[in-house]
């Protein structure tokens, strides 16, 4: 088979689309984040996210978030079929604005935590977790 100029162009275009596709998976995650922040800019100071580098079992991945003075923290798994994980709203009697829980991850992906800080600004932290066995069944 001989490649005409047109064929080659089409091939190149196809390849470009394939490489760009994985990013569109994050669109749902971006929506969840935008609903929380209202589209505001995010800093990166004032929030800590502790997650393992490698999780053998995606069904229970321990994560910890901490953001001193924050009123709310949103946790998002960017590669999950439903990206939202949890939202912590801290009341006046919270001893510290931190919490830890166990989450499910469908595969290797970035886990993102966003805090609404006391002054109304937002801070973001993210951590890549490598998952050996995904946790969404199926």
């Amino acid at each position: 088979m001989e490649f005409s100029r047109r064929d080659t162009l089409a091939l190149g275009l196809g390849a470009a689309v394939v490489t760009v596709l994985p990013f569109s998976v994050n669109a749902a995650a971006d929506d969840v984040i935008a609903t929380f922040t209202g589209g505001a800019d995010m800093g990166d100071a004032g929030i800590d996210l502790t997650a393992p580098e490698i999780a053998e079992n995606g069904n229970t991945v321990p994560v910890e978030v901490s953001a001193p003075g924050a009123s709310a923290i949103l946790l998002v798994a960017t590669g999950n079929p439903t990206p939202g994980v949890a939202q912590f709203n801290f009341g006046p009697l919270a001893g510290s604005q931190s919490a830890s829980t166990r989450i499910r991850l469908a595969g290797t992906q970035d886990v993102v935590a966003i805090a609404k800080l006391a002054d109304g600004s937002f801070a973001k932290a993210s951590s890549t977790v490598k998952v050996t066995i995904g946790g969404c069944g199926g």
């Binding site: 439903t82 939202q87 912590f88």
Partner: peptide, 13 residues
């Protein structure tokens, strides 16, 4: 008085 109010999604174990 509120201490914590947490919304959970299916991604909680």
């Amino acid at each position: 008085q509120s201490v914590l109010d947490m919304t959970m999604e299916p991604a909680i174990s």
